[in-house]
Structures are given as structure tokens and as C-alpha cells.
């Protein structure tokens, strides 16, 4: 599987360390929250809410440079319209990869 990176944030922050730190901290905090909301919605089989949260997570997948995963998430988001969970495990794998990566960042 492809590896996450902070290239986008590096380009965006233009060597402004403070801005870079604020961005990564916000991303970490919001991603943890989104992930919890997703698992809650999954447990409740609330597909509408799941689709909404997956859409939010999709942006964060893109922010970490996971281009192939981004396409998987697009497909998963579309599947959720039809209450189809076939890509659930692939999505979980993406979430785990992102979690591990973000945990490593100080």
C-alpha cells in the first residue's frame, strides 16, 4: 500500500513551522474525531451518516497524498448510497495506515 506523506502541508506552509504544526495538529484531532463518528455510524448502520463522514475523511486521505486510496474512498462513498459495504475492509485498512502515520508525527 502507498505511504502517507506531508508534502501538501509542506508546500502549503511555505516553511512556516508554526502554521505547519497547527495544520498537523488540527488534522490529527479532526481525523480521530471523524474516525470515531464513522465507527459509531457503522455500528448503527446509519448509511447516510456514514457517507457524510467518509466524504470528510476522503479530503484527509488526499491531504496525506494517498492518491490511490483516495479513489477507493470515492468508490466507497458512492457505494454507501446503495448501502453497499463491500469496500469496508479496504477503507479500514486506509484508516489504519493513516492512524499509524499520524501517531508518529509530533
Amino acid at each position: 500500500m502507498e505511504s502517507p506523506n506531508l508534502n501538501f502541508f509542506l508546500k502549503l506552509s511555505n516553511e512556516d513551522q508554526q502554521f505547519m504544526m497547527r495544520l498537523t495538529n488540527t488534522l490529527k484531532m479532526e481525523f480521530t474525531n471523524d474516525k470515531n463518528l464513522y465507527f459509531d455510524a457503522l455500528a448503527q448502520k446509519d448509511y447516510k451518516k456514514m457517507k457524510f463522514i467518509v466524504h470528510r475523511i476522503k479530503h484527509k486521505v488526499g491531504l496525506l497524498g494517498l492518491t490511490k486510496s483516495y479513489n477507493v474512498v470515492i468508490e466507497f462513498e458512492n457505494d454507501l448510497i446503495n448501502e453497499n459495504l463491500k469496500l469496508k475492509d479496504k477503507f479500514l485498512l486506509i484508516l489504519n495506515t493513516m492512524t499509524k502515520y499520524l501517531e508518529k508525527i509530533n
Binding site: L12, S13, F19, R22, L23, T26, L27, M29, E30, R56, H59, K60, L63
Partner: peptide, 14 residues
């Protein structure tokens, strides 16, 4: 934007 990360990014760019 309901995503705080997006608010930070766009706000910073502005």
C-alpha cells in the same frame, strides 16, 4: 467549512 482542517488551510492561504 464544517471541517476545521479546511478552515485552517484556506484561512492560511488567504
Amino acid at each position: 467549512d464544517d471541517e476545521i482542517t479546511s478552515l485552517e488551510i484556506i484561512g492560511g492561504l488567504c
